[in-house]
Write a protein that binds this DNA or RNA. Structure first.
Length: 99
RNA sequence: CGAGUAAACAUGGCAGCCGCGAAAAGAAAACCGCAAGGUGCUUUUCGAGGAAAGUCCGAGCUCCGCAGGGCAGGGUGCUGGGUAACGCCCAGUGAGGGUGACCUUAAGGCCAGUGCCACAGAAAAAAUACCGCCCGGCACUCAACUUUUGUUGACCUGGAAAACCAGAUAUGCCAACAUAUUCUAUAAAACAAAAGAUUAGCUGUUAUAAAACAGCCUAUUUUUUAAAGCAGAAAUGGAAAAUAACAGUUGAGUGCCGGGUAAGGAUGCAACGGUGCGGUAAGAGCGCACCAGGAACCGGGAGACCGGUUUGCUAGGUAAACCCCACCCGGAGCAAGACCAAAUAGGAGGAGGAUGAAGUAGCCCGCUGACUUCUCGGGUUAGGUCGCUGGAGAUACCAGGCAACUGGUAUCCAAGAUAGAUGGCUGCUGCUUACCAGGUUUGCUUAUGGCAGACCCGGCAAGAACAGAACUCGGCUUAUGAGUUUGCUCGGUUC
RNA sequence: UGGGGCGUAGCCAAGCGGUAAGGCACGGGUCUUUGGAAUCCGCAUGCGUAGGUUCGAAUCCUACCGCCCCAG
């Protein structure tokens, strides 16, 4: 995925994505120890997981994602995460067309 | 009311939706895996902390054949108790800090030995060494004249006294009052240093014999003047110790020798007790009083230790320096360890080994007694289950104990992940703070008002820390927002 | 989980009870027409932080902070 996928980047996260040939989406998280302690890393992961769950209905099916957290993501709130993820998907042209 | 001190409590509450993990029961035989096994469906229940943290101690548990001895190493260090154990806790003792409540305390032993104590200082533990002080003896030098310089040093009279006070005198008629009464000067005497001299009181010059001149000093008298011991002028007077040698006396100094002494000796964190009086040639716990300490004895206490009496006994500090003494310590850690499943291999080469491999940090003994190690090659591909939470357990009551803690009874079961579970959103509400509007009340005041404080109600907004289980407990340490309660202390005000 | 080590000026570092050596860099002076070189002078929060022992601590002890390494 790192070799063939495409990326979109924001202040807090880097998002890799590529098609997987299935009828559902998958997401993985990669958070380095540079970001913080285990509690901090776990909290970032949970927040983005929750955000991804919220906007998953608007995303096209059949993709794998890798989400890499960057250092400013320590102080992120849930609302910011939702907005950020949505804008990244829009830039990657992953959203379903509005009916 | 303010400031402080000690201890305890607590780490918001009630709901709803979605999600994550676990347990139990049920249903069904769906999915993944070669298998062990796991996932999934329904219902119910449960799901972070006082520090879960740091990993600084101690234990349980598991394995190392046995867990033995000695050395080495490490730890602890006032006393008594608590505990499974501890470096922890409780109660006390000593020392230190604080006005106090209270707090802090690694607090055994430098007459077992060794080391260190920079700089300074006579000396840092070595001896009564050095300087000094005192006594005695010997040797040597200087003085017993003057001047200069420096220091002290009275100034009309008296008062401790040049300054302050009082008085006196003079002038202006008197009083008051004012001014004046030697003030950049200096006599005698003493001391110190230097220099010089040897007939004017002193200085200088000339001559050469016991003088002269000049200037100055000084005593008396006269005079001038408003006034004179003191300003000016005049007159008279003012003296004597030549040198050298020898001997002695007195005083001072220097050096050497013998003896006494530890009072004093600038320093330093620290100097073989401190202060004072007596005593002495000078001194000394040499004697005495008080204070500090040591030793012995007596008494109290379980002990650390405390109190008293006697005794001149007076001994540097440092062991968070080596060390000595007492007590404790076998090692490794849940990636311990046990079982199950699958697969590959039961290899090759080098080194050591019954003259002893290996046996959980080191060495020796004892015990067991055959493997150990390096390189190459191959397999497994982040396999599963247990250990894993019922325990030195939690809560309540009773009993023992000053307390830490212990015993008994009853009730209860309360997280268990394995790349790692607790999250997201919403509603109501409690707490704190700020602002706005209103009300009640207290104090002050320039008084139908203004200012300040407290309380009540309403509105709106913000805030809520430190931090997250990784086998389990007991402690310690560190981090921590806003609080609550209780005991006690100090200060202020009012009654 | 267990064990070991380090922290001294901007940088590299010595010192391990008696008032912090040295080098590079930096600032100033001398020299030079100027620069370099040479030469002289200067530069420490008192030695990671906070307590303690000691007459005296960078050094000894305790706790904490940060960094590095090793074994399983």
């Amino acid at each position: 995925m790192y070799r063939y996928g495409r990326t979109v980047v924001s202040r807090n996260i880097v998002l890799y994505y590529c098609p997987n040939g299935q009828s559902y989406n998958r997401i993985g998280f990669s958070i380095s120890k540079k970001v913080g302690r285990s509690v901090v890393r776990n909290r970032i992961k949970r927040i983005y997981k929750e955000a991804f769950k919220l906007i998953e209905k608007q995303i096209r099916k059949g993709y794998d994602f890798i989400l890499i957290a960057r250092k400013p993501a320590v102080d992120v709130t849930f609302q910011e995460a939702c907005k950020e993820l949505l804008s990244l998907c829009r830039r990657g042209q992953l959203l379903l067309k509005k009916q």
